[in-house]
């Protein structure tokens, strides 16, 4: 019970937070019904804002986001952190061996990182 206690509270908090957000969204709906909030949509009002002009061309395009490569680097290092966390927790018990081992593990990844850096991948070109 005591172990699950905290998680139970967190789950409960999530439900309450979602309910609160739902309340924040539903309350204006209620107030609209009560005529506190105006509701007068018009084609111009519900148009997309683009500095007062009609938007031209598609919005949902194949956007050239230019950080494709370091998004890949991100995946590598984010997975690495999954290994680092348990290592860090147990570090005091493991000692020098673990330190050197992790050093080697990271060094391998850093080689890749340096390669990516040299290849000018780490830029939003």
């Amino acid at each position: 019970m005591s172990f699950l206690q905290g998680y139970g509270f967190v789950g409960l908090l999530m439900l309450v937070a979602l309910a609160l957000a739902a309340l924040f969204i539903l309350l204006p709906c209620l107030l609209t019904r009560l005529r506190v909030i105006p509701r007068k949509p018009s084609p111009i009002k519900t148009d997309i804002y683009e500095c007062g002009l009609e938007t031209q061309g598609k919005t949902w395009v194949q956007f050239n986001f230019r950080y494709y490569f370091y998004a890949l680097v991100f995946v590598v290092f984010d997975v690495e952190t999954i290994f680092l966390y348990p290592w860090a927790v147990a570090f005091n018990k493991l000692g020098l061996f673990a330190l050197i081992e992790m050093l080697i593990f990271i060094a391998i990844l850093v080689v890749g990182f340096v390669y990516a850096w040299r290849k000018r991948v780490l830029e939003w070109k």
Binding site: E50, C51, G52, L53, T55, Q56, G57, K58, T59, V61, Q62, F63, N64, Y68
Partner: peptide, 17 residues
């Protein structure tokens, strides 16, 4: 890179900070 991307046309102004 052989990814196909599209350019977008964006108006900045006349109502722009």
């Amino acid at each position: 890179m052989a990814l196909r991307t599209e350019s977008i046309l964006v108006n900045m102004g006349p109502h722009h900070p």
